[in-house]
């Protein structure tokens, strides 16, 4: 983080950032590129981490970083308009300001995955938190085995980062498969649940790390499908979402059993949360 963050000891105080660019990704989803308003200094984060973004006078929300970890001159966030803050931020233009706290939380196991096959299963906006891991793996491609990216979306027009998915799929060293829940006759791709893609993708279950992000229900079925394919709980990682107000473990809201999603997560190795993952409303 820039020097402005180090100057304050109060973890609840945001640092002003300027909007460098705003891109509409989908009718309800946009991407913001941000740079510190004062000071420079490289912006480091680990794939899977998130920031708290503050919209003046409206509020603050946790948003995963969706950009390239190697691009240290900016922070990129892909945001779905679902509440007052995310809708408000959707009206920002280049030059406008947001407050940033972070980065917070745990990371995708990109180091542990070195030398192994990597299966990325994501759904909806869940591709955004995984994109930094994909960038990292592609930038260090020889260090990894097979790279499988499986993506599920609501319909063909809800596919996030579609051109990028197509570009990755065009690489000889990357297998990309996507599916949608519903489509009409013009769509020539898959229709069905994302778990169906797993059995058609070739990977070596003995030596694979799976990274999963999407709606909790989607992750529940995905974990089961991965386990059916022979992955054990210690090889499956997923990113959880809970209400957050502070991101530093003070507000108590993001508790998931004994874990604070903000500090111990959002990325969890599945064995850590397996006993409570399917307990209703826990």
């Amino acid at each position: 983080m820039p020097t402005a963050a180090a100057a304050t000891l109060e973890p609840m105080t945001p640092v002003p950032f300027r909007v460098l660019g705003m891109r509409k990704e989908l009718p309800d989803t946009y991407t913001l590129d941000l740079a510190p308003a004062d000071g420079d200094g490289p912006l480091h984060f680990a794939p899977g981490q998130f920031n708290m973004l503050y919209h003046f006078g409206v509020g603050e929300i946790p948003i995963s970083i969706s950009g390239d970890p190697a691009a240290t001159d900016r922070l990129t966030h892909t945001i779905r308009s679902v509440g007052a803050v995310s809708r408000g931020m959707g009206t920002l233009k280049a030059g406008d300001m947001v407050g940033v706290r972070g980065p917070f939380g745990s990371a995708w196991p990109v180091d542990e995955a070195r030398g192994r096959d990597v299966v990325i299963v994501c759904g909806g906006i869940g591709l955004a938190p995984l994109r930094p891991a994909i960038y990292h793996i592609l930038a260090n491609r020889p260090s990894y085995g097979r790279l499988v990216i499986l993506y599920g979306a609501r319909s063909p027009r809800d596919i996030l980062f579609r051109r990028e998915l197509e570009r990755w799929g065009g690489r000889l060293d990357t297998y990309v498969d996507a599916t949608v829940d519903r489509a009409t006759g013009e769509w020539s791709g898959n229709v069905g649940v994302v778990t169906n893609l797993i059995r058609h993708s070739g990977f070596d279950p003995v030596d694979t790390i799976a990274m999963v992000c999407g709606p909790e229900t989607m992750m529940q079925y995905t974990v089961e499908a991965l386990r059916d394919r022979g992955l054990d709980n210690t090889r499956i990682y997923l990113s959880m979402e809970r209400n957050m107000k502070c991101a530093v473990g003070f507000c108590g809201r993001c508790q998931f059993g004994g874990a604070f999603v903000c500090r111990d997560g959002p990325v969890f190795r599945f064995d850590r949360i397996a006993p409570i993952f399917r307990v209703w409303e826990f």
Partner: peptide, 30 residues
């Protein structure tokens, strides 16, 4: 457990952020 509240003055020139005790029994806690 706490929540935070944001408020602005009528002119929208000044925004405040407050932290307030909250309860895990409140509907919006989760």
């Amino acid at each position: 457990c706490t929540t935070v509240e944001d408020a602005t003055d009528l002119g929208g020139q000044v925004a405040e952020r407050r932290r307030r005790w909250d309860s895990c029994f409140a509907a919006d806690h989760s």
